[in-house]
Amino acid sequence: MSLHDEVELLRTIPLFANIEPSKLKLLAFTSERLTFRQGQDLCRQGDMGDAAFIIIDGEADVLVENGGKLTSVAKAGKHSVVGEIAILCDVPRTATVRALSDVTVLRISKELFFRLVREFPSMGLAIMRELAARLDRTTSQLTRALGRITE
């Protein structure tokens, strides 16, 4: 896959939808493309994060440690962004992400990520929107869960 294809792919991701193609090209060019083999961890819960990942191909399992056991809480598939929380707010990784198949990612380093957000406010907005959506999702899940508990 060449740079050109990567740019095309990035454009389909909501986070980068509003960024002009030339900047996406720069993003693709300056980020590493890595392959994680099945079973390898993209990141581990508790580690300090120094990069976010955009999954280009393959599927990964998002695992959270619960009483010494790893529980799968979500799946991350093609075109999803993982690991951005840890680099956004400097907290340790909140989950372990493990490759379910061979997973190809673009690895965006923390510096690069922040630089892009600074330089392209639209990207910051997109991230805000994405996080707000997640918060909304989590809140409604929580409300439902609370409702079940009170029942």
């Binding site: 896959m1 060449s2 740079l3 050109h4 990567e6 693709a28 060019f29 590493e32 493309r33």
Partner: peptide, 11 residues
């Protein structure tokens, strides 16, 4: 001469 195929992916 400076290009690295695996890294630069310029096609």
């Amino acid at each position: 001469f400076l290009l690295v195929q695996a890294r630069h992916r310029l096609g």
